[in-house]
């Protein structure tokens, strides 16, 4: 017999691994991708493929030639960042802009901090917000659904949130709502919006899958959504003709995508359950503040990035419940 292996306990490991978790998230994105392909057709495939490939390529190149570290492009995280970035873009965005977005997401959002695990901001959102600021026109023209074979040449229009922002204060909410798709259409994703954010139903299926596979816990997504519902609900109860109802806020824009996929990013969200809840409440509040009172129609991306910056602080001061500190009878 060879020499015995000696190492400290434990001697058993779970089957968890980083790629497994990443692929789990990707699987949960399939319904949203499917619905998006159904409504926006071929352009979704182009955008997603370009985004994923460039993210992986940039990760590989930066690791190999600039950081000279262990190549990490195989752990799946770059593929996931690419998918999530694509999901936040309009389907008619030109390829070269997508590539710039990927470069910023990976290069600035992830690698400048030292790669996976060290970044403070969600890389996909860093890329998305950079594009939003640099290419405001291209990033706010949205193809209308069901022009499946068109790409950059698609007819465009405004998102429901933009229409709402435009009209608010000038005309009653009920009138604005008449110009918008019905709730059922919004629920299944038949409206204008980014590639992956339109289909509420598909995103919720993704959420259930993530919870079932224990890839994420309910704390962040549910708290964000609940906060938005409560906050917009209060405004709506005060004056239903000036403020849209909570359901409108839930179904439109990037809220579900943000709450389920962006805010829950492991690296950039808090390490304790209590921390997660505080983080999520603030994301909900900031989102509504921007949407209702701010300059932009949508605020969830900014809300998440702002709260990402507070995560180190939350981790420092919010500690898990320790065993044996105080005796609580439940």
């Amino acid at each position: 017999m060879n020499k015995l292996v000696v190492s400290p306990s434990p001697h058993a490991r779970s089957a968890e691994s980083v790629p497994k978790l990443m692929y789990g998230v990707m699987i949960s994105l399939i319904p949203a991708l499917g619905v998006s392909i159904y409504f926006f057709g071929i352009s979704v495939l182009i955008i997603t493929a370009v985004s994923v490939l460039s993210c992986v390529l940039f990760e590989f190149l930066i690791q190999k030639y600039m950081l000279k570290g262990k190549p990490s492009h195989k752990d799946g995280s770059a593929i996931l960042t690419g998918m999530l970035l694509a999901f936040t873009l309009p389907a008619n965005l030109p390829v070269w802009i997508v590539i710039i977005g990927a470069l910023v997401a990976i290069g600035v959002g992830k690698m400048t901090f030292g790669g996976l695990g060290n970044n403070i901001f969600n890389p996909a959102l860093v890329g998305r917000v950079f594009l939003f600021i640099s290419f405001p026109v291209a990033m706010t023209s949205w193809p209308e659904p069901l022009q499946r074979l068109k790409y950059i040449n698609a007819e465009t229009g405004a998102t429901p949130l933009a229409v709402m922002k435009e009209g608010m204060g000038k005309q009653p909410v009920s009138e604005i709502m008449n110009e918008l798709p019905g709730y059922l259409d919004m629920f299944i994703g038949k409206m204008m919006g980014s590639v992956g954010e339109v289909a509420a139903i598909a995103l919720l299926i993704g959420l259930i899958y993530l919870l079932w596979k224990k890839i994420i816990t309910w704390h962040i997504p549910v708290t964000i959504l609940a906060t938005v519902v409560v906050f917009t609900g209060i405004l709506w109860l005060i004056d239903p003709e000036s403020y849209a109802d909570p359901l409108f806020h839930l179904l439109t824009g990037g809220l579900l995508l943000g709450a389920i996929y962006m805010a829950t990013d492991y690296v950039t969200s808090p390490m304790t359950k209590k921390g997660m809840i505080i983080y999520a409440i603030f994301i909900g509040i900031i989102t509504v503040l921007i949407r209702v009172f701010g300059a932009y129609p949508e605020g969830v991306q900014f809300a998440i990035l702002i709260m990402n910056a507070f995560v180190p602080l939350l981790n420092k001061y919010i500690k898990p419940k320790r065993f044996g500190k105080e005796v609580k009878h439940g």
């Binding site: 978790l21 790669g115 996976l116 695990g117 816990t217 969200s269 390490m271 304790t272 359950k273």
Partner: peptide, 11 residues
């Protein structure tokens, strides 16, 4: 591998 801050160890 690097810590991905998944919180599983804390949980």
């Amino acid at each position: 591998q690097s810590c991905i801050r998944c919180t599983k160890c804390v949980t």
